[in-house]
Design a binder for these strands. Structure first.
Lengths: 159, 159
DNA sequence: AAACTCACTTCCAATATTGAATTGACTTGC
DNA sequence: GCAAGTCAATTCAATATTGGAAGTGAGTTT
């Protein structure tokens, strides 16, 4: 199986991975959440090649994650911004930041997140939607729905 | 800049991306959280080539995310499991699942998460550590700490 | 009118990935 | 006791992707 096939997997993690699960795409998203909009700024802030940036942006636009719009006629200039679908990727980037801050860094994280609601510096965490408690890997159990369980018993389709 | 340099970036998102931000690594992690431990099972469940699986597992072990241990002497057999550092990646995979469930799927998600604490099917969400409210991109503001802000003003180092 | 900006595209060498075959230590079935 | 099977890889050639540098073209500034 090649990477291109992931998007048709039944597993929604695999589909998400196919959409945004590569190094440069994740960095582009980080920049989007920091407010970067322009091609050249993405280049500067991520250090990627323009070739790749161009391709990644096209893909993100095609998927509906990013919107391309003109911010100036004459000269015609475009900027890139997140759609609703793209904004919803925030927890993924934040989860990466939290993990990186904890495990890959000594000292003070270079970026802090302020919650607009309460105006405090926050350490966003995953919580249970039902009881509101913070949760991690040990507090969770996966349950397969429907006939999907058959897939994971046998040695068939990667799901 | 090449992808290899990301790990030395000041940005902890970039560092996290360098560690686990590629397609196959993310799928390996998904499998780990579903309980997969053995080489062959990773192959079957992810559909990746054994060559790559071998390389990715080595990298994860080197980073301290995965532990390789013998589950049988004679024949000598090894299994792979998550370290504490690896367990902490759970929010990233869950965030991807939540996004995939919402935006890339019609119908019922193939996997549900049960919170062991309250025994209900949960939709884990990011919340503010200070006030407990659920939060998303629009509820957050990034604040650069220290002299790190200089980096983002100029056109220098990708941060 | 020369230099510059922005948003790309083209080219090609270097690198990474795929898929199939192979290895080797051991176990199981007959 | 010996052929077939299992597990955890490694090797190799074909293919695909990437990185870096250079180029493009519409328009603007000096």
């Amino acid at each position: 199986m090649s990477r291109a096939d992931l998007s048709s997997s039944a597993c929604t993690v695999a589909r998400a991975v196919a959409a945004v699960g590569d190094e440069w795409t994740l960095l582009i998203l980080r920049e989007m959440f920091l407010g970067t909009r322009r091609f050249d700024d993405f280049l500067r802030q991520t250090g990627m090649s323009s070739h790749l940036l161009s391709r990644r942006l096209k893909k993100l636009v095609a998927l509906g994650i990013v919107r391309r719009s003109a911010y100036s006629e004459r000269p015609l200039r475009h900027e890139y911004s997140l759609t609703g679908m793209g904004q919803d990727l925030w927890p993924i980037i934040v989860a990466m930041k939290q993990w990186g801050d904890r495990w890959l860094l000594d000292g003070v994280p270079p970026v802090q997140i302020v919650h607009k609601g309460c105006e405090s510096v926050t350490q966003p965490q995953m919580t249970c939607s039902e009881c509101g408690e913070p949760m991690g890997a040990r507090d969770a159990r996966a349950r397969l729905t429907r006939d999907f369980s058959a897939v994971r018993e046998g040695s068939a389709d990667p799901a």
